[in-house]
């Protein structure tokens, strides 16, 4: 187990290193921040100072080594768009907002998708099934920003039930969370449905039926408990897509999270912040997957 853990750890570290290469390359080839950060009438001194301050006048490999050296210590430099703040601080201060939004979105999708999936599996081929699948499909068929704006018009402007945008209270969370969740709902509903269909055919369910266990107990207790494994294993991927999905939705709702920060930072060519966002995201993703791997290994020793 220790060896397995070690191997996984080394693999993750290598993956992370490759990601630093990619991120560094992408940010540095996407143009320099002068055009974004200085006014149209910037003087040559202003330009020269900024270039020098950011170390952009150094050879690229020196820049990378310097970047890597600092990055190992969690230091990505000072933000350029938000002067005076360290890039990592900017990102870490935004992380909770995105985690809250993502968490809420996942909660909503679970609360809606699991029952919907179960209902659609137990009533396969009926109107309920078609309806559930229809709802699920619509979520996948609409561009998320469009859905977000429609939600704003209907529920914030029209009905006045929620705030249009911004953050602060739980009410602010609802519309953006639904916008992100809807796509996930489609995925989860269909997963739950197919997993349930499989489990409902299993021998022990038939046995339980033969024993006269009531149908709701069979469905919600025996079957779902086993079927839930499939959507749960899917959660890691889901969490990842929640984070990236937030890029668009956070912009629509002015939600001050990581996705919004990433967009603003890229627009401003704020390399330190862009790099921090990607690395933080990658670390979270890799850690989550490491955890999943370890859990699997723990449950199923053959994997080791």
């Amino acid at each position: 187990m220790q060896r397995f853990f070690l191997v996984k750890l080394v693999e993750s570290a290598i993956a992370l290193w490759v990601i630093t290469l990619i991120v560094f390359g992408l940010t540095h080839f996407s143009g320099n921040p002068v055009g974004a950060l200085l006014p149209d009438d910037a003087s040559p001194e202003q330009v020269a100072f900024l270039i020098n301050k950011l170390g952009l006048d150094q050879p690229i490999h020196i820049q990378y080594l310097r970047f890597l050296g600092n990055a190992v210590q969690g230091d990505f430099g000072l933000s350029m768009k938000w002067p005076g703040q360290s890039a990592m601080d900017v990102v870490l201060s935004r992380l909770p907002a995105t985690l809250t939004l993502g968490g809420m979105a996942m909660l909503i999708s679970v609360v809606i998708a699991i029952p919907l999936g179960v209902a659609s599996a137990t009533r396969k081929g009926t109107i309920v099934d078609s309806f559930a699948q229809g709802i699920a499909l619509i979520g996948q068929s609409m561009p998320s920003f469009w859905l977000g704006i429609i939600l704003i018009w209907v529920f914030a402007v029209g009905l006045g039930m929620f705030p249009t945008s911004g953050s602060g209270t739980w009410a602010h969370l609802v519309l953006p969370a639904i916008s992100i969740a809807w796509f996930q709902i489609s995925a989860l509903t269909r997963l739950t449905r197919s997993a349930m269909l499989e489990v409902l055919d299993a021998e022990y369910v038939k046995l339980a039926r033969a024993k006269g266990v009531s149908e709701p107990i069979i469905v919600w207790k025996h079957a779902l408990r086993n079927a839930a494994v499939v959507p749960l294993t899917y959660f890691g991927v889901l969490a990842g897509s929640v984070l990236t999905g937030s890029v668009v939705i956070e912009t629509v709702f002015s939600w001050p999270g990581l996705g919004w920060t990433a967009i603003e930072a890229i627009k401003a060519r704020d390399f330190p912040v862009v790099q921090s966002v990607v690395i933080v995201f990658a670390v979270i993703f890799i850690l989550a997957n490491l955890l999943v791997d370890l859990l699997y290994a723990y449950i199923d020793p053959r994997i080791r």
């Binding site: 143009g31 320099n32 002068v34 055009g35 974004a36 149209d40 627009k267 401003a268």
Partner: peptide
């Protein structure tokens, strides 16, 4: 985007 334009001009 504007920064790209601006960089090209500069």
């Amino acid at each position: 985007d504007w920064p790209t334009l601006q960089n090209a001009r500069l």
